[in-house]
């Protein structure tokens, strides 16, 4: 088991508190390729943020790869994110003034790995994504699909336990979306655990399990795609 959520609740405080996640129970096995689907405002992004240790939960228990994720200070959270999780975002989230190689290598900078070694490792990942010839291009000089593959390379470079992807095809055309999903499937075939948050049924169809979330609750019928 790589992810285990027990009775997770999350409320955003305010004049009218917003209870966004209600008694979430979820287990994800190592090597799964699953999707979390739901309408806008259903709580799927909040769930992903909690899974990615980008946000905290109020009650319940979250265990990631054997580590209880609770009351972590910012330094410990950053260390776990760097070690255990690779993120892929809808808007790629590449740093505009760094070239593809530097973007991919950046997580290793925060791990204290020297420049030469991290560049070599980043180049390996770019080669794996078929982007070796674009290594020294800035994100602005890459297509959407290429940017997303750079982002995937960045997510993979730390050899994380899990990849969390937030609408990874949301900004791509259908052909490029298929390419990106093929990359995810290939990675999953190599044993990588991948969780994709999406509202696109076509993306959901390409995962092994769809977890549906509605009004902050996981719907009873988790389904195999």
């Amino acid at each position: 088991m790589i992810i285990e959520l027990k009775d997770i609740n999350k409320t955003y405080p305010g004049a009218v508190p917003l209870h966004v996640l209600k008694d979430i129970n979820l287990q994800i096995e190592r090597g799964e390729l699953c999707s979390i689907m739901g309408a806008s405002g259903s709580g799927k992004s909040t769930l992903l943020n909690i899974l990615g240790i980008l946000d905290t939960y109020d009650t319940g228990e979250y265990v990631l790869d054997g580590t209880l994720i609770r009351d972590l200070n910012e330094n410990r959270a950053a260390e776990l994110r760097n070690r255990l999780i690779g993120f892929v975002f809808q808007s790629f989230n590449l740093i505009g003034y760094k070239n593809a190689l530097e973007n991919v290598a950046l997580p290793l900078f925060y791990r204290g790995i020297g420049r030469r070694k991290r560049n070599a490792m980043a180049m390996e990942q770019l080669e794996r994504m078929g982007l070796a010839d674009r290594a020294h291009h800035l994100p602005g000089e890459l297509s959407g699909g290429q940017k997303q593959r750079v982002a995937i390379a960045r997510a993979l470079i730390t050899q994380p336990s899990i990849i969390l992807a937030d609408e990874p095809t949301g900004a791509l055309d259908s052909q490029t979306s298929k390419e990106v999903m093929r990359v995810f499937r290939d990675l999953n075939a190599d044993g990588m655990t991948i969780v994709i948050v999406t509202h696109d049924p076509k993306v959901g169809e390409q995962t092994n399990r769809v977890i549906r979330i509605s009004d902050g609750r996981i719907e009873g019928g988790e389904e195999d795609a």
Partner: peptide, 16 residues
């Protein structure tokens, strides 16, 4: 801010 968010997401500690 957004860049800092990216850096934090991929493992930058507040001290970094």
């Amino acid at each position: 801010t957004h860049e800092i968010g990216i850096r934090r997401a991929i493992g930058a500690k507040p001290r970094s």
